[in-house]
């Protein structure tokens, strides 16, 4: 555990809680991609199956349970409790174009050809692109609520901090996981355009709106 890993995890947790609170307090999931949230629930489910097979630490187990619990709670709020506010017409990204290639790639390129390891690999690859339906939705509507941009910023920051964590671990522990690193770089790069808009607009007090 190093400072980048810890702040990365906390940033991830902050993102998840910001989104849950936003939906709960406003009683609305307008502007939120339910498809991205389903993908994240799938990511956590396939990655954390090792909860049943190996114990790493109390911290590790607690965070996994919180992430999974919050992911399903978010999906429940969007598709059940506040379904009437869900903007399905704008959430039109075709997720099969992500899930099918990612599934194929995880069978082809993995550390070990075993069911749990393939599912872990699938979750890593899927996480790297799971935000695309949300970014697609924002590009379609041309705007995002400020609280939604805070959510996205924390979510992008989390993976960027993990990149520093991996650099740290490579130098001080000789540890590297090529699958996680490459997918993490892809994931972080997908946020770069958003990071730019966040810094130049949202942090200066303006709403995030894209030019028509």
């Amino acid at each position: 555990m190093n400072i980048f890993r810890l702040t990365g995890d906390l940033s991830h947790l902050a993102a998840i809680i910001i989104l849950l609170l936003k939906i709960w307090k406003s009683r609305s999931c307008a502007g939120i991609s339910g498809k991205s949230q389903i993908l994240f629930a799938l990511v956590f489910t396939t990655r954390y199956l090792d909860l049943f097979t190996s114990f790493i630490s109390l911290y590790n187990t607690c965070m996994k349970l919180i992430y999974i619990g919050c992911a399903y709670a978010t999906v429940y709020l969007i598709y059940a409790k506040f379904r009437a506010t869900y903007d399905g017409n704008h959430d039109s990204f075709r997720v099969e174009f992500l899930v099918v290639p990612v599934g194929g790639l995880s069978v082809l390129i993995n550390h070990d050809f075993s069911p749990l390891e393939i599912l872990w690999t699938f979750s890593i690859y899927l996480e790297s692109v799971a935000i695309l339906p949300q970014l697609f939705m924002i590009s379609k509507t041309g705007e995002a609520e400020t609280i939604t941009t805070h959510y996205l910023f924390c979510l992008g920051l989390y993976r960027a901090l993990y990149l520093f964590n991996w650099i740290w671990r490579f130098y001080f522990e000789g540890f590297f996981d090529m699958i996680a690193i490459v997918a993490g770089v892809v994931q972080t790069v997908l946020y770069c355009d958003f990071f730019y808009l966040y810094v130049t607009k949202v942090l200066k007090g303006k709403k995030l709106s894209l030019p028509a």
Binding site: R5, D9, H12, R47, D50, T53, S54, I56, S57, N60, M63, K64, Y67, H111, D112, L116, E117, W120, Y162, N165, D177, A180
Partner: peptide
């Protein structure tokens, strides 16, 4: 590579 006991990252 990965640890023997799985992945410690979240």
């Amino acid at each position: 590579g990965t640890d023997d006991d799985g992945h410690d990252e979240l």
